[in-house]
Amino acid sequence: SEEEIREAFRVFDKDGNGYISAADLRHVMTNLGEKLTDEEVDEMIREADIDGDGQVNYEDFVQMMTA
């Protein structure tokens, strides 16, 4: 549901600035027990970053979650 997606976005957007940065993503993945290299984190950001601004905004996140 849209509310679940919004809630998930809030979990990833640690600093609440409306964007998921590589640092935000790394933090959440580490908490989930996933040890990722910087390259892996950057690749995840690139794949999710639809508009190419280097971070994942809510619209990018929705597209990723509903793809």
Rank of each mutant, 00 (worst) to 15 (best):
S1R: 13
S1C: 12
S1M: 10
S1F: 10
S1E: 05
S1D: 05
E2D: 07
E2K: 10
E2S: 08
E2H: 10
E3H: 13
E3Q: 13
E3L: 08
E3A: 11
E3I: 10
E3G: 08
E3R: 09
E3K: 09
E3D: 11
E3T: 09
E4F: 10
E4D: 08
E4I: 10
E4G: 07
E4H: 09
E4R: 13
E4W: 12
I5E: 00
I5H: 03
I5N: 01
I5S: 01
I5R: 03
I5W: 14
R6G: 02
R6Y: 10
R6V: 04
R6P: 00
R6Q: 03
R6S: 02
R6H: 03
E7V: 03
E7H: 06
E7W: 03
E7D: 11
E7C: 07
E7G: 06
A8F: 05
A8L: 09
A8S: 05
A8D: 01
F9D: 00
F9M: 06
R10V: 04
R10E: 05
R10C: 05
R10I: 05
R10F: 04
V11W: 07
V11S: 10
V11D: 08
V11M: 12
V11L: 10
V11H: 11
V11K: 14
F12S: 02
F12C: 04
F12L: 06
F12P: 00
D13W: 01
D13P: 00
D13C: 02
D13K: 00
D13Y: 00
D13I: 01
D13A: 01
D13S: 01
K14M: 08
K14E: 09
K14N: 08
K14W: 09
K14I: 10
K14T: 11
K14Y: 14
K14Q: 10
D15G: 07
D15K: 06
D15P: 02
D15A: 07
D15H: 06
D15Q: 10
D15E: 13
D15C: 05
G16T: 03
G16R: 04
G16S: 05
G16V: 02
G16F: 05
G16H: 06
G16M: 07
G16Y: 04
G16L: 08
N17F: 07
N17A: 06
N17V: 06
N17D: 07
N17E: 04
G18S: 02
G18N: 03
G18M: 02
G18H: 02
G18L: 01
G18Q: 01
G18I: 00
G18R: 01
Y19V: 04
Y19R: 11
Y19M: 11
Y19D: 01
Y19E: 02
Y19W: 10
I20S: 00
I20N: 00
I20F: 01
I20W: 00
I20T: 00
I20Q: 00
I20R: 00
I20C: 03
I20K: 00
I20Y: 00
I20A: 01
S21Q: 06
S21H: 06
S21F: 05
S21K: 06
S21D: 08
A22H: 09
A22E: 08
A22R: 11
A22M: 13
A22T: 13
A22G: 05
A23G: 09
D24N: 07
D24G: 02
D24E: 08
D24S: 05
D24I: 05
D24A: 07
L25Q: 00
L25N: 00
L25D: 00
L25Y: 02
R26L: 06
R26Y: 06
R26S: 03
R26T: 04
R26H: 06
R26F: 06
R26K: 12
H27A: 09
H27F: 11
H27K: 13
H27T: 14
H27I: 13
H27L: 14
H27P: 02
V28K: 00
V28I: 09
V28R: 00
V28H: 01
V28W: 02
V28P: 00
V28M: 03
M29G: 01
M29A: 04
M29C: 03
M29T: 02
M29K: 01
T30L: 14
T30V: 12
T30D: 11
T30M: 14
T30G: 10
T30I: 11
T30H: 13
T30F: 08
N31G: 09
N31C: 10
N31H: 11
L32Y: 12
L32A: 03
L32E: 01
L32N: 03
G33V: 11
G33A: 10
G33T: 11
G33F: 15
G33R: 09
G33L: 13
E34V: 15
E34S: 15
E34L: 15
E34A: 15
E34M: 15
E34P: 14
E34I: 15
E34N: 14
K35Y: 12
K35C: 12
K35P: 11
K35A: 08
K35V: 10
K35W: 13
K35S: 09
L36D: 02
L36C: 08
L36N: 03
L36G: 03
L36A: 04
T37G: 05
T37H: 05
T37L: 08
T37M: 05
T37Q: 05
T37K: 06
T37D: 05
D38T: 11
D38Q: 12
D38V: 11
D38M: 11
D38C: 07
E39W: 11
E39V: 08
E39S: 10
E39M: 10
E39H: 10
E39K: 12
E39P: 05
E39L: 10
E39N: 07
E40N: 05
E40F: 10
E40Q: 13
V41T: 04
V41M: 13
V41G: 01
V41N: 02
D42A: 12
D42G: 07
D42T: 10
D42I: 14
D42W: 11
E43W: 15
E43F: 14
E43V: 11
E43N: 14
M44P: 00
M44W: 11
M44T: 02
M44I: 10
M44S: 02
M44Q: 02
M44V: 04
I45R: 03
I45A: 05
I45K: 02
I45H: 02
R46F: 05
R46I: 04
R46K: 13
R46D: 04
R46C: 06
R46A: 09
R46H: 07
R46N: 08
R46L: 08
E47H: 15
E47P: 03
E47Q: 15
E47I: 15
E47A: 15
E47D: 12
E47V: 15
E47N: 15
E47K: 15
A48I: 12
A48S: 09
A48G: 06
A48H: 11
A48K: 08
A48D: 02
A48V: 09
A48N: 07
A48F: 11
A48Q: 07
D49I: 12
D49W: 09
D49E: 13
D49S: 12
D49K: 15
D49Q: 14
D49T: 14
D49C: 12
I50H: 11
I50S: 08
I50W: 09
I50R: 13
I50P: 11
I50N: 07
I50V: 13
I50L: 11
I50F: 06
D51N: 14
D51S: 13
D51R: 14
D51Q: 10
D51T: 12
D51C: 10
G52L: 10
G52I: 11
G52K: 13
G52E: 12
G52V: 14
G52D: 13
G52R: 12
D53H: 10
D53Y: 12
D53G: 08
D53P: 03
G54Y: 05
G54K: 04
G54W: 03
G54R: 05
G54M: 04
G54H: 05
G54V: 04
G54I: 03
Q55Y: 15
Q55T: 07
Q55S: 08
Q55N: 14
Q55P: 04
Q55V: 09
V56P: 01
V56N: 00
V56R: 01
V56Y: 08
V56T: 02
V56G: 01
V56F: 08
V56M: 05
N57S: 13
N57E: 06
N57Q: 12
N57M: 10
N57C: 14
N57T: 08
N57D: 04
N57R: 15
Y58K: 01
Y58L: 08
Y58Q: 02
Y58R: 01
Y58G: 01
Y58V: 13
Y58N: 00
E59A: 05
E59G: 05
E59C: 04
E59I: 07
E59W: 06
E59D: 05
E59Y: 06
E59P: 02
E59M: 08
D60Q: 14
D60K: 15
D60F: 15
D60W: 15
D60R: 15
F61R: 00
F61V: 14
F61M: 07
F61N: 00
F61L: 10
F61Y: 05
F61I: 14
V62Q: 02
V62P: 00
V62S: 02
V62A: 03
Q63M: 09
Q63L: 09
Q63W: 05
Q63D: 07
Q63G: 06
Q63P: 03
M64N: 07
M64Y: 07
M64V: 07
M65Q: 02
M65C: 04
M65E: 01
M65I: 11
M65T: 02
T66E: 04
T66V: 12
T66G: 09
T66N: 07
T66K: 07
T66S: 09
T66P: 03
T66H: 11
T66R: 08
T66Y: 04
A67D: 11
A67M: 05
A67K: 15
A67H: 15
A67S: 14
A67E: 13
A67I: 07
A67L: 04
